[in-house]
Write a protein that binds this DNA or RNA. Sequence first.
RNA 1: GUCCCCAUCGUCUAGCCUGGUCCAGGACACCGGCCUUUCACGCCGGCAACACCGGUUCAAAUCCGGUUGGGGACGCCA
Length: 465
Amino acid sequence: MIVTRFPPSPTGYLHVGNARTAIFNWLYARHMKGKFVLRIEDTDAKRSTQEAIDAIFEALEWLGIDWDEGPYYQTQRLEIYNSYIERLIETGEAYYCTCSPEEIETMRQKAMTSGGKPKYDGTCRNKELSNIEGAVVRLKAPLSGTTIIEDVIKGNIVFQNEELDDFILCRSDGIPTYNYAVVIDDMTMLVNTVIRGDDHVMNTPKQILIYKALDCPLPVFGHVPMVLGTDKSRFSKRHGAVSVSAYKDMGYLPDAMLNYLVRLGWSHGDQEFFTRQELIDVFDLEHIGRSAGVFDPEKLLSLNADHIRATLPDELVAPLKPFLKSHGIEVKDSDLIKKVIETLHARSKTLEEMAENALFYFVDDIGYEEKAAKKFLKPAVLEALRLLIDQFEILDNFSEENLESAFKAVMDQTGLKLGKIAQPVRVALTGKTASPGIFEVSALLGQDKVISRLKKATRYIEDKG
RNA sequence: GUCCCCAUCGUCUAGCCUGGUCCAGGACACCGGCCUUUCACGCCGGCAACACCGGUUCAAAUCCGGUUGGGGACGCCA
């Protein structure tokens, strides 16, 4: 059975780059009917926070990523790491080292200036020191030969073992280092498929060495290329919004985010739009690309519009409510919201945009956009508006069909074309020059509101004239 | 500096493994047009790429080598 995992370190919000590797692991596990494990890598006490943990859970939940095992916390697994340290010391695969950080630093400086790779020189390698207070544990890494990553995405990557050094497994305070804890965790959690960011390739040979020292079979490794910003450097804050929750707040649909992030670096022929289930059905590791990709907010936005359009208005009601609320609108009538969404869902790229454009349906007193009023609410349309009010007042069924005939009647009486009448009416009803169809807007607004807004517009014109 | 990775339209990518069907296809953005009561949606059309050099071959975007460019990693961070 395939077992994948996502191991965030809780030092901040969930970054879209990290979210993408979480998604790859999750999708692959779901596709293979395997298991997906969540593990919190909180060994860095200085930077790990509970808020970050909560933020990560919230973002994963929003994305619809669930896990079958965990969350595990590394800080609760210290005994496990220690027991394997003892074993590695016993078998001679690791040793205690008492070199100070300062000494190491001068070692690095020397190596750097002489053109070499900064690494530990092995001072304590053969001293067979015992567990002295303040000692670190280092792996006794091979001095020659090669270590090969058989990467499912990038192919074989070969490292000369001379490039590697006796890196630290366990810090002087007894806390395991990242590379060591990861191996022990993946090994004991039976993780057999490790899909992670490109930035980890250099860690992988080290981890392979630990697996070998432990005489443990290797998992399958797959390193996915990074997500870049427009300037081709690692995607970060200066390129725009980077946290998953920011996109949630801007009114993106989780499925759109999922779709976009997966398609950034993975493909399935020419297909651009995927539902969650389609992704689970067809996702594979073979079609993950080898080159890094630029995060394009425009394309995400367009995809979000596609997902909004593909979602039934009914299902958009609940997600839209918080956005209406943030504009001070609380509507109890879900059926009304549904109807409002029907008029807006082909013209909204985000839920936030949809909420903004829905405001005129709900507020009591709409304001006119300055340019709109200036251009369309003019004395020339006064007569048409009054005739329309007359027509509307005698309607007993405020249906779109009846509305249309009412408009026709006014067109006949005034000799004006529909366009000449519709725009002023639109401004009167919505305050803006762009809106859903004038008949649907009117029908939804209802007789009373339409008539009162039209009357208000006539008064506005009279006052100005 | 050392090591590693990458290289098709502005961007995401298909094609590359299994050379010819590719004077390179799709999508976003952009530009025209149609539809039309506005804005969208939809539809039609356009712009635009195989980084460079050399090799292999009858034939290379596809295979090989090099160059250049970009990215990443070199912590008692993860």
